[in-house]
Computed example of a mutant assay.
Amino acid sequence: MDYGVWEPARLGRTRLLDGRALGWAEWGPADGDPVLLCPGAATSRWLGFGGGVLDSAGIRLISVDRPGLGASDPAPGRTLTSWAADIRHLIQERALGVPSAVGFSQGAPFALALAAGGLVNAVAVVSGSDELAHARFAHSLPPQVRDMVDAVAADPDAAEASFAGFGSADTLWDLILATSPEADRAVYTDPVFQHAFRRAMDEAFSQGPAGYARDTVLAMGRWPFDPADIAVPVDLWYGQQDTSPVHSPDRGESLTRMIPTATRHLVPAAAGSLLWTHAEAILHTLTAHAR
């Protein structure tokens, strides 16, 4: 089956004001409606989605490596707020106007930070990580996730060092397969998809584990913005069969109530891989807001 993980049409790096560069990959027409992709944990710009949909839909998908991952230079101590500042500059330099955004899995808080900063016109959160350190999840996290959240709250620097010691492409690939239901394993182990996924992971760790570790600290900590202040449309997509311990514990139910502009889409037969199994619906719904 074709899960839409096509080769990028264009690759590049954009220089920031402080001299760092952000690496990116693009699919779809160069003059299409821009959609920024915030990839999931421990992956890079190489793993896109919707390859068979983008041209006909007139969508220019732009996946951006976060600092320290893939082709993006590191930024020690970076935050969700500084990430939004980096993307503000990238949008200006590449004349993207006001794009839309997609945040997959651990990329969700990064996409929502762009919405909170007024940089995008709509967001699709797909199988997204939630604000796991929020009090509403005090009693609903799996023990191993609760330990990570507590470690970040107690000593962020020590937690970051611990995550770096754990992080590698092989370790995380094994963890993904171990915590995924059969519906997701069928996608992830498809030969074409697995090649694209593993290449994206290998590139994500090409500079070492520090970028992954910083991402994880930010994902396990409190968000520096209030979801209630987000004013653009937000679609929250979750698969009913999703078993990932680091996605939203209630599949976006409480986050939908917190974001006044949010709509929740709970897909009964889908699991965590619905970015690739339901790409057309996700992109159609997202771009309809802007158009």
Rank of each mutant, 00 (worst) to 15 (best):
L141G: 02
W46N: 05
D65H: 02
A228T: 13
G165Y: 05
A151L: 05
T263M: 09
G51M: 07
I259W: 00
D86C: 14
L54K: 01
P142G: 00
A186C: 11
G12W: 00
A186K: 14
T179R: 13
A154L: 13
S63Y: 01
T285H: 13
T285P: 10
L255P: 06
A178N: 09
G97W: 04
A262K: 00
P143G: 07
P227F: 10
D18Y: 03
E253W: 07
M1W: 11
L175P: 03
A108S: 15
S162P: 03
F163M: 08
I230V: 13
R88D: 14
G32S: 02
P260D: 02
S162V: 04
M220V: 02
V246Y: 03
V125N: 03
V53D: 13
P156K: 10
A138E: 14
L119G: 08
G19W: 01
V35T: 02
S244E: 03
Q194K: 15
S273N: 10
V246K: 03
G252T: 12
S254T: 15
V232F: 01
A270R: 00
A262Y: 00
A153W: 07
A113V: 11
V53E: 14
A21L: 04
M148P: 04
T171A: 15
T277N: 05
G51F: 04
A158Y: 03
D170T: 12
T261F: 05
A178S: 15
A269T: 14
A159R: 05
D157T: 15
S44M: 05
E26C: 02
R185E: 11
G23K: 02
R60A: 09
P8V: 03
A183W: 08
S180R: 04
D250V: 08
Q240F: 09
H139G: 12
H284P: 03
S254A: 14
S63R: 06
R198K: 13
D130C: 11
A159Q: 06
P233R: 10
C38T: 12
I176P: 02
G107F: 02
V145N: 08
W173Q: 08
L11K: 00
T189D: 11
Y188C: 05
D250Q: 11
A169M: 10
D202Q: 14
H278T: 07
D242T: 11
P249V: 05
C38I: 09
L96W: 01
A270M: 04
D33L: 14
L90F: 15
D155Y: 09
P233L: 09
Q207F: 08
A101N: 00
G40Y: 11
R146S: 12
A210M: 08
H89D: 14
I59D: 01
W173P: 04
Q207C: 08
E280G: 07
P29W: 00
P233M: 08
P260C: 06
H278P: 07
H195K: 14
A269M: 10
H289S: 12
D170W: 10
